[in-house]
Simulated scan of single mutants.
Amino acid sequence: MDSELVVLASSAATTVVGLLATDAWEQTKVAVTALWQRARPEQAEAIEGELLATRTELLAAREAGDGGAEEELTVEWRTRLRRLLAADPALERELRGLLAELPPVAPSTDRGNRVEMQGRASEHARIYMSGGDMHITGP
């Protein structure tokens, strides 16, 4: 599998799981279920159920202060999304569109110092990324 698709699946999983614990959970459920409906209609109902189960487990884990549960749930969704993209790499555009439609995930305080970034440059573009302060000097 292309490393870019792996990064996309990872980013999407982080976003989906993070949003399931917010007011945007319904929008997230509808968007992800619709993606599955287009890609694998026979699995769409089961995926909707998995999203609801993930939300329930995530909320309970956050209530209990179990930060590891969110990471485990994210890994599960990363695997699902990687399999979906591996079976049909053309879904990359749809998954990117889905992520563009969803609100950004606010950083979670129980993830420690983990920073996840993604950047893409072409031609002569430059990308500067930082998980903290950044000071650039020179031309």
Rank of each mutant, 00 (worst) to 15 (best):
L59I: 01
V7W: 13
A24V: 05
A31Y: 03
R78Y: 11
V115C: 09
G65P: 05
E50P: 10
E76I: 08
T28D: 00
R93H: 10
R38K: 13
Q37P: 05
K29I: 07
A121L: 12
S130H: 00
R120V: 10
A69C: 10
S122P: 05
L19M: 04
L95M: 09
G132V: 01
A24N: 06
V7K: 14
L84Y: 01
S130W: 01
S10G: 15
L81T: 03
A60M: 01
L35A: 13
M134Q: 12
V30P: 05
L85Y: 05
L19E: 04
M129R: 15
W25D: 13
W25N: 12
G97I: 01
M117D: 07
D2H: 10
E63P: 08
A24R: 06
A21K: 02
A39I: 01
V6P: 05
A87Q: 11
Y128I: 09
P41R: 07
R82D: 14
G97R: 02
T74M: 00
T137G: 15
L102R: 01
R62Q: 15
V32Y: 05
V30F: 04
R78G: 14
L81H: 02
R114G: 02
E45S: 13
A125K: 07
E48N: 15
D133H: 12
V16P: 09
A39P: 04
L73E: 05
L84M: 07
A69W: 01
T137M: 08
A53K: 12
P107S: 08
P107E: 11
M1L: 10
R93G: 11
M1T: 14
E4A: 15
R93D: 13
R38F: 06
E57P: 09
E72L: 09
A39H: 06
L20V: 04
V115I: 10
G131F: 01
E76L: 14
V6C: 06
H135K: 12
L59T: 04
L85I: 02
T74R: 08
L59R: 09
A46G: 11
E101N: 14
L102N: 07
V75E: 15
G18M: 02
L59H: 04
R93F: 11
D66I: 00
E123V: 11
